[in-house]
Amino acid sequence: MRKTICVLIVIGLCAVFSSVSAQDIVRIANETATPPFNFVDGNGKVQGFDVEIAAALCDVMGVKKVDVIQDWDGMIPGLIAKKFDAIISDMSITDKRLKVVNFSQSYYDEQGLFLARKGENIDFSVDGMKGKKVAVQRATTFANYIKGIYGSSVDIKYYETPASQILDLLSGRVDLILASDVFVHKTIKTKDGEKLAIVGSPVKDKKYIGDGVGIAVRKQDKELLENFNKALDTIKSNGTYDKIYNKWFM
């Protein structure tokens, strides 16, 4: 009997410590490959808009933030497998993703822009795009857009990161890049970017691009989702969000 009681006490203590741990620490996945949203600086430190938003939210929530670097195409599988607790990494809210995870309210409205070599005259009709080589990051809303709009008429080239597409565009191995507006604007301000130009119209189609960027959590983590939403309301109302936004985008 005494042995049974001891076992029950140990189990109870483990449950308590597990609960406390879950509340005190939030592991946040980040790709660190899409500046200025997320990247690793010269000192090996994770930086960017997403990173500072995550830090501000965790501060409001009173929890410790732990960064987990994760390749993009393993983001949602990693979340479901409990490798981390949330994704704050420029992830758009789409119907397809909502089938497997929950999202917070949007904290950023994203659109896509096409980037080409200067002097290129691009016809964005289905016939005009026939045979074009288009670079996109694997498993993104932009990849879904190109596939959905142009299908087999274009040659879609998949990349692990947005930055890895630039060299192939400059060398002529691809004709176009479709990426986030922030990444594209940042790119054209670089030395290599002087040889490139934004072409076509911004891509805003919600069917593919989604309803803004949100924080992804597992379906069962409803309390964590509620805490993130409350924290987002707080940083939007107290000026913290605007301060972070202006630092990285203005």
Score class of each variant (00 low, 15 high):
Asn38Tyr: 08
Asn38Phe: 00
Asp41Glu: 12
Gly42Ser: 15
Gly44Pro: 13
Lys45Val: 14
Ala55Ile: 08
Ala56Ile: 03
Leu57Tyr: 06
Val60Lys: 15
Met61Lys: 11
Met61Arg: 12
Val63Gly: 06
Val66His: 06
Asp67Asn: 08
Gln70Leu: 13
Trp72Ser: 14
Gly74Phe: 14
Pro77Ser: 09
Gly78Ser: 10
Leu79Tyr: 04
Ile80Leu: 15
Ala81Glu: 12
Lys82Asn: 12
Phe84Arg: 08
Asp85Val: 01
Ile87Ser: 12
Ser89Glu: 05
Asp90Phe: 02
Ser92Phe: 05
Ile93Phe: 05
Thr94Glu: 15
Lys96His: 14
Lys96Trp: 13
Leu98Met: 02
Val100Arg: 04
Asn102Pro: 01
Ser104Gln: 04
Tyr107Ala: 00
Tyr108Arg: 00
Tyr108Glu: 13
Gln111Cys: 10
Gly112Asp: 10
Gly112Leu: 12
Gly112Ser: 11
Leu113Ala: 10
Leu115Pro: 09
Ile122Pro: 13
Ile122Thr: 12
Ser125Ala: 02
Ser125Asp: 11
Val126Ser: 08
Asp127Phe: 12
Gly131Trp: 05
Lys133Thr: 02
Val134Leu: 05
Val134Tyr: 07
Val134Asn: 08
Val134Trp: 04
Ile146Thr: 03
Ile149Trp: 01
Tyr150Gln: 03
Gly151Gln: 07
Ser152Lys: 12
Ser153Val: 11
Val154Glu: 06
Val154Lys: 06
Lys157Trp: 04
Ala163Ser: 12
Ser164Tyr: 10
Ile166Pro: 03
Ile166Ser: 06
Ile166Glu: 07
Asp168His: 01
Leu170Asn: 00
Leu170Met: 01
Ser171Ala: 02
Ser171Phe: 02
Gly172Ser: 00
Gly172Pro: 05
Arg173Gly: 01
Arg173Ile: 04
Leu176Gln: 06
